[in-house]
Design a protein around this nucleic acid. Sequence first.
DNA 1: CCGCTGGGGGACAACGTTGTCATAGTGGCC
DNA 2: GGCCACTATGACAACGTTGTCCCCCAGCGG
Lengths: 347, 347
Amino acid sequence: MTTLSPSGPVAGQRKVRRATMNDVARLAGVSIKTVSRVVNDEPGVHPSTAERVLAAIDQLGFRRNLSARNLRRGSSTGTIGLVLEDVGNPFYSGVTRAVEEIARLRGRQVISGSSDEDPGRERELALEFCSRRVDGLLIVPAGLQHSYLVPEMRAGTPVVFLDRPAGDVVADTVLVDNIGGTVEAVTHLAAHGHRRIAFLGDAPDIFTANERLRGYREGCVRAGIGYHEELVAMGPHDESSVATTLQRLQSMREPATAIVAGNNRITVYILRALAGVAERPALVGFDDFELADLLSPPVTVIAHDASALGKAATDLLFARLDGDNSPPRRVVLPVRLVPRGSGEVHA
Amino acid sequence: MTTLSPSGPVAGQRKVRRATMNDVARLAGVSIKTVSRVVNDEPGVHPSTAERVLAAIDQLGFRRNLSARNLRRGSSTGTIGLVLEDVGNPFYSGVTRAVEEIARLRGRQVISGSSDEDPGRERELALEFCSRRVDGLLIVPAGLQHSYLVPEMRAGTPVVFLDRPAGDVVADTVLVDNIGGTVEAVTHLAAHGHRRIAFLGDAPDIFTANERLRGYREGCVRAGIGYHEELVAMGPHDESSVATTLQRLQSMREPATAIVAGNNRITVYILRALAGVAERPALVGFDDFELADLLSPPVTVIAHDASALGKAATDLLFARLDGDNSPPRRVVLPVRLVPRGSGEVHA
DNA sequence: CCGCTGGGGGACAACGTTGTCATAGTGGCC
DNA sequence: GGCCACTATGACAACGTTGTCCCCCAGCGG
């Protein structure tokens, strides 16, 4: 092995055992404990000794092994686990960002994974994180069974569910006002004269989809326009299923004149299906999205803040880590209707 | 401590020491090594013994401590570290998703963090990940100095840089064809008759921003329209700086009739600034984005695939982990111009 | 009846770190 | 000059797991 200038190339050279505190100690001519003291900024080390140790650390490229440290100290591993549906979805990447932000302030790293709406995968990820002894767990539930987490929670790992509640476990939960949101959407559309309002939602076994459907229903009733089964199409949806649904809705004897979209993906599918269509139904989408205001017509949405959701959940988690022992809380974040045009089209 | 039904609430109850293999061994009446064998599916355990052990594991809610395991085994920790600019940016969340996907296939967890374009933060994150003994590191460089990674690379941690090259270290790198992209953008605009083409780019110390500027310049020269300093505005940009720049560009003696936007954020700022303006310049944006095709006019872009970038980098990383010792590679992914309308406006 | 084989299982050390406790030296004070 | 307080340092065990090596015992062939 030749000397390596900082600017020199480095590539192969595997199997070079990493320096440990022992190596540093030997090189600096001190005991391993003294190295530990220096590394951890503990007091009681003579400045000249510390200097020698630091030089050795530098020379050997020593970096302390956190696995060993965590094992020995037993307390915090400095990590929190985040299980969500899909980091690729802008909504969840916003959540991730917020979580990361707060974790950083509290000196924690975030380990995350996407469940893709698969309960098995969610469980696998969560338990894997527990094996890594994360300090806490943030979960966007994919399924309805979470009793697998009971042993972990008993062992002291706080868990906060976000966006959807857990199935069979009572724990901190942060939700958004799904029902209120779709009630408002329907009310808004009805106020603009619509009486045939359709709802396109995600798979009904998804909590948020179901809640939003309930809100839609309630909104219809409150608005006095009644609830009509044939105006509802629950998912799972993809671009083509949405397109077919729209055709069906518009070719009815009494066509739908307005649509409420159950989430950001469905909204986009609808927009795509309607592109170029002259006679467009009014539209209100659940979830805000970038550029909604720049489309024509601009898209009216039920907005809620991904980063507020992430922040609320993470704050709750850290409160638990700080020793908060109060009974589990359920936080419901408000949503607000942002009128932009697409929902203000007259019937 | 009372028994706890699966559906029962769980919240406080901290400080319940986690069960270890020792506890399991005692309960099952076997040695700790036998527990280890069962947990690791090692052969040579009598079925009936294994059953007893599994029952004990279940009863105690045992979950093996990966810190201890990793320490003892010394080899892989089953994690890879990902340092990027901002998970909140859809481009990077696409990268993250792709990385996660492949890591999953190879049985790895992803630990990620956002540097926010701060070299210090990048370094902090990368070194923290090294302390956790990640199996490999994927980095979107924020700065130009990466010699801090030399000891880590020597110690056998493979590093792949993506989207931008490292400053002073030779390592695997995956880039996109930035120069080719802006050359093509300018060529495209010039072909549509534009002779006053502006370029709005990110801060020039960012590699991609600088490359794209070079491509813009080269494109101008090739198109025979010359390079004009006053048509270039490098960042950092925000919504208002972009708006002011646009005003300046349009109030010149010979106004710009077309714009090349240096990245997805700038493109959006431009769109926002142009909203409602009657006389719009032609526009080509670097980076594709969702809904670009649904705007009016639809936005012509230089598209490149975030997930292809993430995949290429992760594949490279795993090749190293599989023992590939060849010299560092530099992969340049192609970009392609997607004409949609905004770039085809006549001068 | 003896030795051999192989399956099932255990004792023990080691991974790299940190907490506890002990100890050597140094200077000050009565 | 003896004792104390204090600083600087080290020896050692322990964290929870796994790799190595060893042992016991049943079964079997000679």
